[in-house]
């Protein structure tokens, strides 16, 4: 009976939700499917005393949660699609296979230096202005990455999504700064 379906770990996050891998998912539909599956697969529904069934339910639910977190978020979903295409930017080895152009690294360096100065001066308006610009750049890069994934252009997608990661890191620094100012 177990042989009838692939083991959960071999199934993609998309397959778990009965979807083909795609950039364009209906997040509302995913959310309701998630609720249905969470109930249906809940470990408490495993037959009493069947510890193996219970264990399986626990592992399936854990995978469902992981899949949900990835699929509902456009950035994580795009990175996951890129990973399925063979480049895992979230691992060092995968990232090393997709080096960023030098002029982009220079741009990041300049932006981070400007942010550092603004934070040191506690210049909120400047920090926010820099962050707004980076948010716009991140949105642009994500759109470019999604377009590239739709046309299966893995190289362009990895460059665009690599940019998204650097911009996301920048915005994490902004968030940390703002939080520190509040306390």
């Amino acid at each position: 009976m177990a042989a009838a379906t692939a083991s959960p770990s071999e199934r993609t996050h998309f397959a778990l939700f009965g979807l083909e891998p795609t950039v364009d998912v209906d997040v509302k539909a995913i959310e309701s499917r998630f609720r249905e599956l969470s109930l249906a697969w809940h470990p408490d529904r495993a037959p009493a005393g069947d510890s193996r069934a219970r264990l399986e339910a626990v592992s399936r639910t854990a995978q469902l949660n992981d899949a949900f977190v990835v699929l509902k978020d456009p950035v994580r979903r795009a990175l996951y699609l890129l990973k399925l295409a063979g480049i895992d930017l979230e691992s060092e080895a995968g990232a090393a296979r997709a080096p960023m152009p030098l002029d982009f690294l220079e741009e990041v360096m300049e932006r981070r230096e400007a942010l550092d100065q603004a934070m040191a001066a506690k210049d909120h308006a400047r920090v926010q202005a820099l962050a707004d610009d980076v948010r716009a750049q991140r949105a642009l890069a994500l759109t470019r990455g999604q377009d590239a994934l739709r046309s299966q252009d893995v190289t362009t997608a990895s460059h665009a999504l690599g940019r998204v990661r650097y911009y996301a890191r920048f915005l994490e620094q902004v968030d940390a700064f703002e939080e520190e100012q509040l306390t």
């Binding site: 979230e90 990232a95 360096m109 911009y167 890191r169 994490e172």
Partner: peptide, 13 residues
């Protein structure tokens, strides 16, 4: 030398 780590989004010069 300017290098970056996409895995964490950090840069080093």
């Amino acid at each position: 030398g300017l290098v970056g780590a996409p895995a964490c989004g950090d840069v080093m010069r």
